[in-house]
């Protein structure tokens, strides 16, 4: 069986590296990775990949759509999903944020494992990213609270612990998170000092 040539188009280099490795582990030997900075149409013309995996949020998708036109002069037409029999797979791919463009006449049982790998990796990566986002937010909130504590300490001439307790009390009374109370306090103090 002919080796499958997969091209990945993704501006998130972290994710594309993981995806590339996963596809190689799964036995797909030829894997090219591109970002939207590369000339996609030229690449496809020269490398003639069998499958293109693309981030759903890539603006390049519209260029890939135009392959239908390009293919009139190209022996290897590339369209999105040769037939629409497997709707659930497409739906799942869209929800995971991944889309695929495959060579016309390509059997679905050969694209399915690639898509499975891609969908799984996209999901994993998204989970990782939202975890990271959460950590980042927590860090920022901590900075706000520290700053607010400093203000309270100066104003009330109290210890750090007491300042924190004051903030916590405010947060409970107002039914707000401590970080929100801290942010409000900082902006009020800023406004007053101006």
């Amino acid at each position: 069986m002919k080796k499958l040539h997969v091209t990945i188009v993704d501006d998130d280099s972290g994710r594309s590296i993981i995806l590339e490795r996963a596809l190689k582990d799964a036995g797909y030997e030829i894997v090219d990775v591109l970002s939207s900075k590369d000339n996609l149409l030229l690449h496809i013309e020269q490398r003639q990949p069998d499958v293109i995996i693309v981030d759903l949020e890539s603006p390049n998708r519209d260029s890939l759509e135009s392959m239908r036109i390009v293919t009139q002069h190209n022996p290897k037409p590339i369209v999105m999903f040769t037939n629409d029999s497997d709707h659930s797979m497409i739906g799942e791919a869209i929800n995971a944020g991944v889309s695929a463009y495959v060579v016309d006449g390509f059997s679905e049982n050969r694209i399915k494992p690639i898509m499975d790998v891609a969908i799984a990796r996209f999901r994993e990566f998204q989970a990782l990213r939202s975890e990271l986002e959460k950590t980042k937010n927590t860090l920022e909130e901590r900075k706000l609270i520290d700053k607010a504590k400093g203000i309270v300490m100066v104003q009330r001439n109290c210890s750090e612990n007491e300042a924190y307790n004051i903030l916590r009390k405010l947060s409970m009374e107002n039914n707000k998170r401590i970080a929100e109370v801290a942010e409000q306090l900082i902006s009020i103090t800023d406004a007053l000092s101006n």
């Binding site: 890539s58 890939l64 759509e65 739906g91 929800n95 889309s99």
Partner: peptide, 15 residues
Amino acid sequence: EASWANIRDKLAYGV
């Protein structure tokens, strides 16, 4: 949305 293809697909699948 980043592309017209995205609009088409996300509308088709109810996203």
